[in-house]
């Protein structure tokens, strides 16, 4: 091999970079997010499956509907529990803790919704 003094360090750097996730998290399994169960009701506004994948789309349609089209703020779950179609007064009414619910997943998946720039978070009890 020619130019060992440049090529071998180059390869080491390359392998170091692409294996970053392996040595960065070596030996730690990470923690699984366990969002706190809501005690206010038995079910969410949509199926859990849908909520897990698409709650941000739901929030977005609520927002557009209410703020721009003057839609109703009233909603009912499948079993007839009434709720307010609102981030602060709806979601956070049943899911009373942002930290123990929303953030549990969001920190894990590294998402930082900017909603809380304006919307108030519920007071965390502890």
């Amino acid at each position: 091999m020619y130019d060992n003094n440049k090529i071998i360090p180059g390869l080491i750097v390359f392998v170091g970079l692409i294996t970053f996730p392996i040595w960065y998290g070596f030996g730690s399994a990470g923690h699984l997010p366990i969002p706190e169960k809501s005690t206010k009701s038995k079910e969410c506004v949509e199926s859990v499956e849908y909520m897990r994948t698409s709650h941000m789309v739901l929030l977005n349609t609520w927002r557009d509907g209410i703020v721009r089209m003057g839609e109703t703020r009233h909603g009912e779950t499948a079993d007839g529990t009434p709720y307010v179609r609102s981030l602060q007064k709806g979601c956070m009414n049943c899911h009373t803790s942002k930290k123990k619910f929303c953030d549990e997943c969001h920190t894990y998946a590294s998402v930082k919704p900017y909603c809380w720039d304006c919307h108030l978070q519920p007071k965390e009890t502890n």
């Binding site: 970053f20 996730p21 960065y24 998290g25 923690h31 894990y108 998946a109 590294s110």
Partner: peptide, 10 residues
């Protein structure tokens, strides 16, 4: 995509 391979996310 490294957010899916690291925890905590750098």
């Amino acid at each position: 995509h490294m957010r899916l391979f690291t925890d905590p996310v750098p």
